[in-house]
């Protein structure tokens, strides 16, 4: 295997066990996002964000970089599957996802003894809502009327953030850390 461009030999990508795990988690996240899009929502834009459970698990087990990969792959993958890639909705997703990843980058250093995945989920939900509202205010709806949406969007975000965090915490307990080792051997 050589990196030379003149050489016609095919380059082989080194795929690590972690790459497999990221791909697997991203696939689950995309499936959750697609499933969730079938749930009718009383208010446009309010979604449970079940895919964030997967992001949280990736963060807890594989670290922030893996969580970022899972999150970005999910946003791209879900918008390709559902249609509407590069649409305003996609931009909002990306803004929310980027904000919540930034907050998680700092929040992952919270002492685990006192702060579980519920804390990370709540912080991520607040950041997600803030990022989306900020982009919407700056670009899509350049009018202050958007502040009337803050209570509804943030309220729903907190409720779903709490539920998702509790689900993620429960899943983390049922998914022992040895599982990754077994998969690496397989």
């Amino acid at each position: 295997m050589t990196a030379s461009a003149t050489d016609s030999a095919t380059q082989r990508l080194q795929v690590t066990a972690q790459d497999h795990q990221i791909a697997r988690l991203a696939a689950i996240a995309i499936a959750l996002a697609v499933l969730e899009s079938g749930i009718p929502s009383p208010i446009p834009g309010v979604k449970p964000g079940l895919a964030n459970i997967v992001t949280l698990l990736a963060l807890a087990r594989l670290g922030w970089a893996a969580a970022a990969w899972v999150s970005v792959l999910r946003i791209l993958g879900a918008s390709i599957v559902l249609g509407g890639i590069f649409s305003p909705g996609f931009a909002l997703s990306l803004a929310g996802g980027a904000c919540s990843l930034l907050v998680l980058a700092a929040a992952q250093y919270l002492p685990r003894r006192w702060f579980g995945l519920v804390s990370l989920s709540l912080l991520s939900a607040i950041a997600h809502t803030a990022g989306q509202l900020l982009l919407a205010r700056l670009w899509l709806i350049p009018h202050n009327g958007i502040v009337y949406l803050i209570p509804i969007l943030l309220g729903m975000g907190l409720v779903f953030g709490l539920v998702n965090g509790m689900v993620a915490e429960q899943l983390l307990r049922r998914w022992p850390a040895q599982a990754d080792l077994q998969e690496r051997d397989a």
Binding site: L110, P111, R113, W114, F115, G116, V118, S119, L122, L123, I126, P151, L154, G155, L158, G161, L162, G165, M166, E169, Q170, R173
Partner: peptide
């Protein structure tokens, strides 16, 4: 019970912020 002390504090802070 899966919520830890910090989780409860953060939950209360979030509701206050809201």
């Amino acid at each position: 019970r899966c919520l830890r002390v910090g989780d409860w504090c953060l939950l209360a802070l979030s509701v206050l912020l809201w």
